[in-house]
Simulated scan of single mutants.
Amino acid sequence: MSYAVVLAPFLVAAIVAAVVAIRRDRRGWAALAIAAAVILVLTVVFDSLMIAADLFRFDDALLVGIRIGLAPLEDLGYALVALLVVAALWRLLPRRLLPGRRTEPEASRG
């Protein structure tokens, strides 16, 4: 079984969760896009360093074949899944379960 086949259901589920959670919020999508860009760049940089240091290897027969730096394309999918799931949970969980979230804007507090 290839890495892409293992990744696909997780990626689809994470995308669905993010779409349900963020829906029509343009600011939410913009924030998610910025976070995705940062996470993907960091993943490429640090995965390339770890692969160059020979900390781990991928079976080339199980890869799609596209690499960005030394990181295979599939490896970026796992970082994207994590980002989408965290963003969806942040939006979907009740505010009382997330102690860092404010229930009202800072400016309206007395």
Rank of each mutant, 00 (worst) to 15 (best):
I68S: 00
A82M: 14
L97K: 03
R95L: 15
I66M: 11
R96S: 12
R101P: 01
A17Q: 03
R91D: 07
F56P: 07
L80A: 14
D60G: 12
R27L: 15
G28N: 11
I66Y: 08
R23H: 14
L98A: 04
T103E: 08
S2I: 06
L70N: 00
A53I: 10
S48L: 03
L7D: 02
G69I: 08
V86C: 12
A35L: 15
W29D: 08
Y3H: 07
P99N: 09
T43N: 08
S108D: 09
L63M: 09
L92F: 10
S2F: 10
D59G: 08
L93S: 03
L93K: 05
V41S: 03
P94M: 13
L84T: 05
I39K: 02
G110K: 01
L73A: 11
E74L: 04
V85K: 04
L76E: 06
D54P: 00
V19R: 09
S2A: 13
L49Q: 13
V45P: 00
P94A: 09
T43W: 00
F58M: 13
V6K: 09
A31P: 01
V45D: 00
M1S: 10
A17T: 01
V64P: 00
R26V: 14
V64H: 08
L76R: 04
I15A: 15
P105V: 09
E74R: 04
L93T: 01
R101K: 13
E74G: 07
V5L: 11
G65L: 05
I34L: 15
V19A: 13
M50P: 00
E106C: 04
F10V: 03
P105D: 15
A8C: 09
L55A: 10
A18I: 06
V64M: 10
M1F: 14
R109S: 09
L42A: 06
L83P: 03
A79P: 12
I39G: 00
L97Q: 10
V64E: 06
V81H: 12
P9K: 07
F46I: 05
V5H: 11
A87D: 09
A8H: 09
I39M: 01
A88L: 01
V6G: 11
V16P: 10
R95K: 14
R102Q: 11
V6E: 11
D47N: 01
F58S: 04
F58C: 06
V20P: 02
V38D: 05
L84G: 05
I51W: 03
V81K: 04
D47Y: 02
P72V: 03
G110F: 08
